[in-house]
Nucleic acid binder design. Sequence first.
DNA 1: GGCGTGCTACGATTTAATTCGTTGACATAC
DNA 2: GTATGTCAACGAATTAAATCGTAGCACGCC
Lengths: 136, 136
Amino acid sequence: MALHSPNPKREALPLPSAAEIDILAVLWRLGPATVREVHEALGKDIGYTTTLKQMQLMTEKGLLLRRERFRSHVYEPGIPKEQTQTQIAADLMKRAFDGSAQSLVLGALSAQPASSEELAGIRKMLAAFAKKKGRP
Amino acid sequence: MALHSPNPKREALPLPSAAEIDILAVLWRLGPATVREVHEALGKDIGYTTTLKQMQLMTEKGLLLRRERFRSHVYEPGIPKEQTQTQIAADLMKRAFDGSAQSLVLGALSAQPASSEELAGIRKMLAAFAKKKGRP
DNA sequence: GGCGTGCTACGATTTAATTCGTTGACATAC
DNA sequence: GTATGTCAACGAATTAAATCGTAGCACGCC
């Protein structure tokens, strides 16, 4: 797993709404996909045109990129997954966790205790960050 | 810092909106406070009555508790800070981080590299969770 | 009493997010 | 050709969030 670049570019991106994040998450999982594919992956009982409209608006906002393909359109995230995730985490940390990464981690682990493997993975990441800090 | 209790009670709490979280965060910092205190702490250029209305609605939803005091009202969170934070983190982890605590931690650290002290604190937490897992 | 101050309560407006119905374009099947 | 199915586009309706203006109430003070 790669490290995200720290605070890559702080633009006036309005954070994606919950519904928008859901769509992004599907695209992260599937890779480039059509509206129909996304809509079915969402599974929720909403209409196809609703998903379509959402994705059209997101495209206008720059959250998605659209490519023509034969008869349909293929969408993909307009911003790298890592950057979006980092922004979301930063916003949340600032808003709800007093700017403390530690609090956020505590919250996350309390919500759903991680497996031993995951704990080990997290430890590894910490080591990487500590090293980076030691000699930048 | 205390460990949050894991997945304490999964009710139909609609997650607080961004504006609501901002208000909660102020109350977490200040302790019980009046509308005016919260409004001034927010600092943002919004009207006093807007903050008042928000807090009234939040009270109806159970997000805040209200006590009469002399001539004014004193508000405090209706749900323990830890529980709210845990729910927020859980929701985010599920939505945007593929359910992986590791990804969330990576996002948080990438956003704002933690100090050595904080890294140490996080390590300590991990140890606690590992122990808890080892013999529950 | 009459007035200013600091509150809450209430209603309405504004703005943004979400939802869906309908249409037309274009293929393919019959 | 006509019917059928799939899709994007568009407009509109619905719902929810956020904002504020106005009014009313209690108090202390002149």
